[in-house]
Structure formats: C-alpha cells, structure tokens
C-alpha cells in the first residue's frame, strides 16, 4: 500500500512541486485568506489524484499493477490513501504558513474543515466512476462535478454565516432546524467542526471505497 502511494506521488512529482510552489507563492505574495486556502487545498489534492488516475490509464500502469502480487482491493484503496495523504500535506503546508505569519489559526480550521469535506465528496464520487468506467469517462464528469461540489461547499459555509439570522417560519424551517442547530453546535468551535467534518468525510470515503472495490472486481 505504502509503495503504491509513494509511486503515485513520485509519478506526480513534477506536478506536485509545481503546484506547491504556486500555492506557496500565493500565500507569500498575497497573504493567505480562507477562501484562497480552500481553493488551493482543493485544486492541489484533486489534481494529484486525477493525474495519478490519468497515468494509470495512459501508461496502462494498471495492467502492470495487476501482474504484481497486489490485491485488487489494495490497488483501489491506495488511491483513497493517496487522496487523503495529499490533502494532509497541503493542509500542513497552509497551516505552517499561517503559523509563520502569526495569523489567527481559528478561521483556518473552518476552511480546512470544509475543504476536507468538499474534497472527500469529490473523491467519493469520482473514484467509483473511475474504477467502473476508466479515466476517459470519469474525466467527462470530473470538471462539472468539481465545480458543483466546490460551489456547494462555499454555499454551505455561507449557510452557517446566515444561520444567526432569524429564518422565516415555514415548512423549510421545521426541516432545517435540527440541521441548523447541529451546525451551530459544531461550529461554535472550529476545531470541533474540523473533527466532525473529517469524521463525516471518512465515512463517506469508506462507503465510496467499498463501492469502488466492488466495481473494480466486477469490471474485470
């Protein structure tokens, strides 16, 4: 597993270093802001994952892997681990910048929380499609998916900001109240928010991984 992830990182080494440099440049020049972090974290980790899938498809590295003594499930899971690893690396870098520039870390936690959730949802939808239909078909849906999810996560974040306002009393209200209360509860502390959304992300990814393994096995 470890070697598969390292392989994917290594295959993407040029892209990784380019994007990280770009991210660093923005952070240094422009100063970091929460949406910027969200965007950076998203684009970088998503990019690495997509590209590693691309290489498996283009070079037919997948066939190579299948001739090695590696379980099919390990091959599938390695993509998820790769995604999570890259996410961690990027988050760590942003955090480092924030600490170095002496900013308030609290707002970062909120950004991270939503980045992680958003990216996890993207992975969770993208990877099963990739393992079932291959890179080309997954590619057609990827951009659309990415924009929708990122947009939705911004929206979701805004939703939290507006929950302090009185919500008109209607049917929607009754439906939304528990959710809003829950969000209010967890967003009281950004760290709790981060932990909660990370846990939710993991559950989503686990379900998706199970689906991917099933698709990968059946697609043979």
């Amino acid at each position: 597993m470890r070697h598969l992830v390292i392989k994917d990182l290594y295959v993407n080494r040029k892209y990784m270093s380019f994007v990280l440099l770009f991210l660093a440049a923005i952070l240094v020049l422009k100063g970091s802001s929460a949406p910027m972090v969200l965007f950076g974290v998203g684009i970088t980790s998503y990019g690495v994952l997509i590209r590693s899938c691309y290489y498996d498809d283009k070079d037919r590295g997948d066939i190579f892997l299948r001739t090695l003594p590696i379980k099919a499930s390990t091959i599938v899971l390695s993509k998820y681990i790769l995604g999570i690893s890259v996410l961690f690396i990027v988050v760590a870098i942003c955090l480092l910048f924030a600490i170095l520039s002496g900013q308030n870390l609290d707002i970062y936690f909120a950004s991270f929380a939503f980045s992680i959730l958003a990216i996890s949802i993207v992975y969770a939808i993208y990877l099963p499609i990739f393992f079932k239909y291959g890179y080309v078909k997954a590619a057609t849906s990827q951009s659309v998916l990415f924009i929708i999810i990122m947009g939705a996560s911004f929206g979701f974040k805004e939703l939290i900001n507006i929950t302090n306002f009185p919500v008109p009393v209607n049917q929607l209200h009754r439906f939304l109240t528990p959710l809003i209360n829950f969000i209010n509860e967890i967003s009281r502390s950004n760290i709790i928010l981060l932990l909660t959304l990370s846990a939710v992300s993991l559950v989503i990814l686990a379900v998706s991984a199970k689906l991917s393994i099933k698709f990968y096995d059946a697609g043979k």
């Binding site: 392989k7 290594y10 295959v11 290489y55 283009k58 070079d59 037919r60 590295g61 066939i63 190579f64 001739t67």
Partner: peptide, 11 residues
C-alpha cells in the same frame, strides 16, 4: 511479460 510491456513512461 505482456505483448506491449507497460509501465509508467516517466519512470
């Protein structure tokens, strides 16, 4: 050994 041995081109 496959017909067109495949690896990662860039490695």
């Amino acid at each position: 050994v496959g017909e067109q041995p495949v690896f990662y081109d860039d490695l």
